[in-house]
Protein backbone atom coordinates (compact mmCIF):
# COMPACT_ATOMS: atom_id res chain seq x y z
CA UNK A 1 0.00 0.00 0.00
CA UNK A 2 1.28 3.48 -0.84
CA UNK A 3 2.25 5.80 2.02
CA UNK A 4 -0.35 8.39 3.01
CA UNK A 5 0.20 11.76 1.31
CA UNK A 6 1.03 14.69 3.59
CA UNK A 7 0.65 18.33 2.55
CA UNK A 8 1.78 21.35 4.60
CA UNK A 9 0.14 24.69 3.83
CA UNK A 10 0.99 28.20 4.96
CA UNK A 11 -1.25 31.21 5.43
CA UNK A 12 -0.49 34.40 7.46
CA UNK A 13 2.11 33.34 10.04
CA UNK A 14 5.74 33.41 11.15
CA UNK A 15 6.63 29.89 9.78
CA UNK A 16 7.49 28.76 13.33
CA UNK A 17 4.94 25.92 13.45
CA UNK A 18 6.07 24.44 10.09
CA UNK A 19 9.61 24.81 11.37
CA UNK A 20 8.63 22.73 14.40
CA UNK A 21 8.09 19.82 11.98
CA UNK A 22 11.64 20.30 10.60
CA UNK A 23 12.84 20.63 14.20
CA UNK A 24 11.94 16.95 14.75
CA UNK A 25 15.56 16.19 13.81
CA UNK A 26 15.60 12.72 15.36
CA UNK A 27 12.30 11.68 13.79
CA UNK A 28 12.27 13.55 10.45
CA UNK A 29 13.80 10.83 8.25
CA UNK A 30 11.54 8.22 9.86
CA UNK A 31 8.47 10.39 9.22
CA UNK A 32 9.61 10.85 5.61
CA UNK A 33 9.73 7.05 5.33
CA UNK A 34 6.15 6.60 6.48
CA UNK A 35 4.55 9.57 4.72
CA UNK A 36 4.79 10.78 1.16
CA UNK A 37 5.53 14.50 1.62
CA UNK A 38 3.49 15.67 -1.35
CA UNK A 39 3.46 19.41 -0.73
CA UNK A 40 5.68 21.27 1.72
CA UNK A 41 6.87 24.39 -0.06
CA UNK A 42 9.14 25.60 2.70
CA UNK A 43 11.15 22.35 2.60
CA UNK A 44 10.83 21.00 -0.94
CA UNK A 45 10.40 22.12 -4.56
CA UNK A 46 8.77 18.75 -5.43
CA UNK A 47 5.00 19.13 -5.56
CA UNK A 48 2.55 16.24 -6.06
CA UNK A 49 -1.04 16.97 -7.04
CA UNK A 50 -3.85 16.27 -4.57
CA UNK A 51 -5.92 14.78 -3.14
CA UNK A 52 -3.98 14.55 0.11
CA UNK A 53 -4.56 12.20 3.07
CA UNK A 54 -3.40 14.70 5.71
CA UNK A 55 -3.10 18.46 5.40
CA UNK A 56 -1.37 20.47 8.11
CA UNK A 57 -2.38 24.13 7.88
CA UNK A 58 -0.35 26.94 9.46
CA UNK A 59 -1.42 30.57 9.61
CA UNK A 60 -4.57 32.66 9.70
CA UNK A 61 -6.86 34.01 6.97
CA UNK A 62 -6.21 37.71 6.29
CA UNK A 63 -6.71 38.27 2.53
CA UNK A 64 -9.59 37.70 0.05
CA UNK A 65 -7.25 35.39 -1.93
CA UNK A 66 -6.61 33.22 1.14
CA UNK A 67 -10.36 32.84 1.76
CA UNK A 68 -10.55 31.12 -1.64
CA UNK A 69 -7.29 29.18 -1.20
CA UNK A 70 -8.28 27.53 2.11
CA UNK A 71 -11.49 26.22 0.48
CA UNK A 72 -9.38 24.65 -2.29
CA UNK A 73 -7.10 23.07 0.35
CA UNK A 74 -10.13 21.65 2.20
CA UNK A 75 -11.56 20.19 -1.00
CA UNK A 76 -8.31 18.28 -1.63
CA UNK A 77 -7.75 17.03 1.94
CA UNK A 78 -9.16 13.93 3.62
CA UNK A 79 -8.02 15.10 7.09
CA UNK A 80 -7.33 18.80 7.69
CA UNK A 81 -5.47 19.78 10.85
CA UNK A 82 -4.80 23.40 11.79
CA UNK A 83 -1.55 23.94 13.69
CA UNK A 84 -0.65 26.84 15.93
CA UNK A 85 -2.27 29.95 17.39
CA UNK A 86 -2.59 31.72 13.99
CA UNK A 87 -4.49 28.79 12.42
CA UNK A 88 -6.58 28.00 15.52
CA UNK A 89 -7.33 31.53 16.78
CA UNK A 90 -6.09 34.16 14.28
CA UNK A 91 -2.70 34.73 15.95
CA UNK A 92 -1.09 37.96 17.14
CA UNK A 93 -2.14 39.60 13.85
CA UNK A 94 -5.78 39.32 15.06
CA UNK A 95 -5.04 42.43 17.15
CA UNK A 96 -6.26 44.23 13.99
CA UNK A 97 -9.75 42.89 14.80
CA UNK A 98 -9.93 45.46 17.61
CA UNK A 99 -8.66 48.35 15.46
CA UNK A 100 -9.19 50.10 12.15
CA UNK A 101 -7.12 48.10 9.63
CA UNK A 102 -7.02 51.01 7.14
CA UNK A 103 -5.33 53.11 9.83
CA UNK A 104 -2.89 50.22 10.41
CA UNK A 105 -2.01 50.08 6.69
CA UNK A 106 -1.52 53.85 6.67
CA UNK A 107 0.74 53.56 9.69
CA UNK A 108 3.07 50.87 8.26
CA UNK A 109 2.99 51.42 4.48
CA UNK A 110 3.73 54.58 2.50
CA UNK A 111 1.38 53.39 -0.29
CA UNK A 112 -1.48 51.62 1.53
CA UNK A 113 -3.40 51.33 -1.76
CA UNK A 114 -0.90 48.55 -2.74
CA UNK A 115 -2.05 46.45 0.22
CA UNK A 116 -4.94 44.00 -0.22
CA UNK A 117 -6.01 42.80 3.18
CA UNK A 118 -9.13 41.88 5.16
CA UNK A 119 -10.27 43.84 8.23
CA UNK A 120 -9.89 40.74 10.40
CA UNK A 121 -7.49 37.86 10.97
CA UNK A 122 -9.55 34.68 11.47
CA UNK A 123 -8.82 31.03 12.25
CA UNK A 124 -9.08 28.29 9.62
CA UNK A 125 -12.23 26.93 11.34
CA UNK A 126 -14.06 30.20 10.55
CA UNK A 127 -13.89 29.27 6.84
CA UNK A 128 -13.85 25.46 6.47
CA UNK A 129 -14.46 22.32 8.55
CA UNK A 130 -11.35 21.42 10.57
CA UNK A 131 -10.74 17.86 11.84
CA UNK A 132 -8.34 18.77 14.66
CA UNK A 133 -6.83 21.95 16.08
CA UNK A 134 -3.35 21.83 17.63
CA UNK A 135 -2.72 24.78 19.90
CA UNK A 136 0.37 26.79 20.71
CA UNK A 137 2.50 29.76 19.68
CA UNK A 138 4.42 27.76 18.57
CA UNK A 139 2.99 24.21 18.68
CA UNK A 140 4.83 21.69 20.82
CA UNK A 141 7.08 19.28 18.92
CA UNK A 142 5.94 16.41 21.16
CA UNK A 143 2.25 17.12 20.58
CA UNK A 144 2.84 17.47 16.83
CA UNK A 145 4.56 14.06 16.68
CA UNK A 146 1.78 12.51 18.79
CA UNK A 147 -0.84 14.01 16.46
CA UNK A 148 0.88 12.70 13.30
CA UNK A 149 1.35 9.25 14.88
CA UNK A 150 -2.26 9.10 16.05
CA UNK A 151 -3.60 10.26 12.67
CA UNK A 152 -1.55 7.57 10.88
CA UNK A 153 -2.91 4.96 13.32
CA UNK A 154 -6.47 6.35 12.95
CA UNK A 155 -6.77 6.85 16.72
CA UNK A 156 -7.60 9.91 18.83
CA UNK A 157 -4.47 11.94 19.70
CA UNK A 158 -3.56 12.30 23.37
CA UNK A 159 -3.67 16.10 23.66
CA UNK A 160 -5.00 17.27 27.05
CA UNK A 161 -7.50 20.15 27.27
CA UNK A 162 -6.84 20.82 30.98
CA UNK A 163 -5.20 23.98 32.33
CA UNK A 164 -1.53 24.93 32.54
CA UNK A 165 -1.94 24.52 36.31
CA UNK A 166 -2.09 20.74 35.84
CA UNK A 167 1.36 20.85 34.20
CA UNK A 168 2.75 22.88 37.13
CA UNK A 169 1.35 20.36 39.61
CA UNK A 170 2.64 17.37 37.62
CA UNK A 171 6.10 18.96 37.34
CA UNK A 172 6.21 20.05 40.98
CA UNK A 173 6.53 23.72 39.97
CA UNK A 174 5.58 26.01 42.85
CA UNK A 175 2.69 28.29 41.87
CA UNK A 176 4.25 31.64 40.82
CA UNK A 177 1.00 33.49 41.48
CA UNK A 178 0.41 32.15 44.99
CA UNK A 179 4.03 32.12 46.16
CA UNK A 180 5.40 35.23 44.44
CA UNK A 181 2.34 37.27 43.40
CA UNK A 182 3.30 37.06 39.71
CA UNK A 183 0.28 37.51 37.37
CA UNK A 184 -0.30 34.22 35.51
CA UNK A 185 -2.82 33.09 32.85
CA UNK A 186 -2.13 29.42 33.74
CA UNK A 187 -5.57 28.73 35.31
CA UNK A 188 -7.40 29.60 32.05
CA UNK A 189 -4.75 28.45 29.54
CA UNK A 190 -4.61 25.00 27.92
CA UNK A 191 -1.70 22.76 28.94
CA UNK A 192 0.78 21.43 26.40
CA UNK A 193 3.82 23.73 26.27
CA UNK A 194 5.63 21.58 28.81
CA UNK A 195 5.25 23.92 31.78
CA UNK A 196 7.61 26.50 30.31
CA UNK A 197 6.97 29.94 31.77
CA UNK A 198 6.22 29.06 35.41
CA UNK A 199 9.25 26.76 35.51
CA UNK A 200 11.34 29.78 34.43
CA UNK A 201 9.84 31.95 37.18
CA UNK A 202 7.46 33.91 34.96
CA UNK A 203 3.69 33.88 34.65
CA UNK A 204 2.03 32.01 31.77
CA UNK A 205 1.13 34.44 28.97
CA UNK A 206 -1.48 32.24 27.34
CA UNK A 207 0.26 31.15 24.12
CA UNK A 208 -1.71 27.84 24.05
CA UNK A 209 -5.04 29.71 24.19
CA UNK A 210 -8.01 29.12 26.48
CA UNK A 211 -8.55 25.75 28.14
CA UNK A 212 -11.87 23.94 27.89
CA UNK A 213 -14.51 25.93 29.85
CA UNK A 214 -12.21 28.56 31.41
CA UNK A 215 -13.44 30.85 34.19
CA UNK A 216 -11.63 33.99 33.05
CA UNK A 217 -13.78 36.51 35.00
CA UNK A 218 -12.79 34.81 38.29
CA UNK A 219 -9.10 34.88 37.36
CA UNK A 220 -9.38 38.56 36.41
CA UNK A 221 -10.56 39.38 39.96
CA UNK A 222 -7.44 37.68 41.35
CA UNK A 223 -5.20 39.49 38.83
CA UNK A 224 -6.79 42.84 39.74
CA UNK A 225 -6.04 42.09 43.42
CA UNK A 226 -2.40 41.64 42.40
CA UNK A 227 -2.49 45.18 41.05
CA UNK A 228 -3.17 44.77 37.32
CA UNK A 229 -4.98 47.77 35.81
CA UNK A 230 -7.84 47.29 33.30
CA UNK A 231 -5.60 48.10 30.30
CA UNK A 232 -3.02 45.59 31.57
CA UNK A 233 -5.76 42.95 31.97
CA UNK A 234 -7.04 43.68 28.47
CA UNK A 235 -3.56 43.34 26.93
CA UNK A 236 -2.85 40.13 28.87
CA UNK A 237 -5.86 38.42 27.22
CA UNK A 238 -5.41 40.19 23.89
CA UNK A 239 -2.08 38.81 22.72
CA UNK A 240 -1.20 35.60 20.79
CA UNK A 241 -4.72 34.15 21.03
CA UNK A 242 -6.57 37.48 21.15
CA UNK A 243 -9.43 36.29 18.92
CA UNK A 244 -10.03 32.97 20.75
CA UNK A 245 -13.61 33.56 21.99
CA UNK A 246 -12.93 33.27 25.76
CA UNK A 247 -9.89 35.58 25.63
CA UNK A 248 -11.54 37.97 23.15
CA UNK A 249 -14.59 38.41 25.43
CA UNK A 250 -12.69 38.72 28.69
CA UNK A 251 -10.23 41.23 27.21
CA UNK A 252 -13.08 43.42 25.96
CA UNK A 253 -14.65 43.62 29.46
CA UNK A 254 -11.50 45.46 30.62
CA UNK A 255 -11.33 47.85 27.66
Amino acid sequence: MANPKLAVWKFSSCDGCQLTLLDCEDELLEIAGKLDIAQFLEASSAVTEGPYDISLVEGSITTPHDVKRIKEVRAQSRVLISIGACATAGGIQALRNFADVAAFANRVYARPEYIDTLATSTPISAHVAVDFELRGCPVSKHQLLELITATLAARKPHVPTTSQCTECKAAGTVCVMVAQGIPCLGPVTQAGCGNLCPSHGRGCYGCFGPKLNPNAPALSLQLADLGLTPPQLRDLYHSYNAAAPAFDTEGRTHD
Partner: peptide
Amino acid sequence: FEPPRFFEAFLEGRD
Protein backbone atom coordinates in the same frame (compact mmCIF):
# COMPACT_ATOMS: atom_id res chain seq x y z
CA PHE B 1 2.85 38.35 -1.33
CA GLU B 2 3.03 37.13 2.23
CA PRO B 3 0.12 39.02 3.75
CA PRO B 4 0.98 42.03 5.91
CA ARG B 5 0.66 41.60 9.66
CA PHE B 6 1.08 45.22 10.89
CA PHE B 7 3.43 44.64 13.81
CA GLU B 8 4.59 48.25 14.08
CA ALA B 9 0.96 49.42 14.22
CA PHE B 10 -0.35 47.13 16.95
CA LEU B 11 2.75 47.61 19.11
CA GLU B 12 1.68 51.20 19.71
CA GLY B 13 0.12 51.52 23.15
CA ARG B 14 1.46 48.15 24.40
CA ASP B 15 3.77 47.84 27.40
